[in-house]
Amino acid sequence: MTTSPRQERRSALPLPLAHQSVFSFRFTASPRGARLARRLASCQMDAWGWRYGTQAHDSVELITAELTANAVTHGRVPGRDAELRLSREDGGCVRVEVSDARGERLPEARDAGSEEDGGRGLLLVAALAKEWGTAPRPGAPGKTVWAVVPTAPAVTGGTGP
């Protein structure tokens, strides 16, 4: 079985955004948009050298999944996008920021023993992140929920940090 030249070319290219310290992506405030943001965060962590299956990669992917799901569930305003921003920080951390258009609806972590369905995603975020919080959305209505994830040194293979 042979591969097409297009497939060969694509696999020979370095991963995009590997040398940039910030990755930003606007996504539709829908479950599909949240899944795409999580997948792109996963690809970006791999491009930066934190491979699939490592603690840093999996923590950023899970935190991104939780924050984007919250943004599209609780922060959705029809016709407004949400935004994901990942940044490598000095000191061995990756900062995950998810912005939505609903500034009046701040996230609340529910008690682990609560009888209510849902609401425990922020407990996972708190457990995996060094710190997390909220801030007004810069230059737009809404809020940004952020988390700082500690990372081990990335595996460099020419495309890492």
Rank of each mutant, 00 (worst) to 15 (best):
M1P: 11
S4P: 05
P5L: 09
E8S: 12
P16A: 02
R26G: 15
F27V: 06
T28Q: 15
S30E: 10
S30Y: 04
P31H: 01
L36V: 13
R38H: 13
R39D: 13
R39I: 12
L40Y: 12
L40G: 08
A41G: 11
S42M: 03
D46K: 09
D46S: 09
A47C: 00
A47S: 08
A47H: 01
G49I: 02
R51Y: 01
G53I: 00
G53P: 03
H57V: 01
D58V: 02
I63T: 04
I63H: 01
L67E: 01
T68Q: 00
A69Y: 03
H74E: 11
G75I: 07
G79L: 05
D81N: 11
E83H: 08
L86E: 03
D90T: 12
V96N: 04
V96T: 06
V98D: 05
D100N: 15
A101L: 11
G103M: 00
G103T: 02
P107I: 05
P107D: 12
E108L: 04
A109E: 11
A109M: 07
E116Q: 14
G121W: 07
L123E: 12
A126K: 13
A126M: 10
L128F: 11
A129C: 03
A129R: 02
E131M: 07
G133L: 06
R137C: 02
T144P: 04
W146A: 12
A147S: 07
V149R: 00
V149C: 03
P153F: 09
G158K: 01
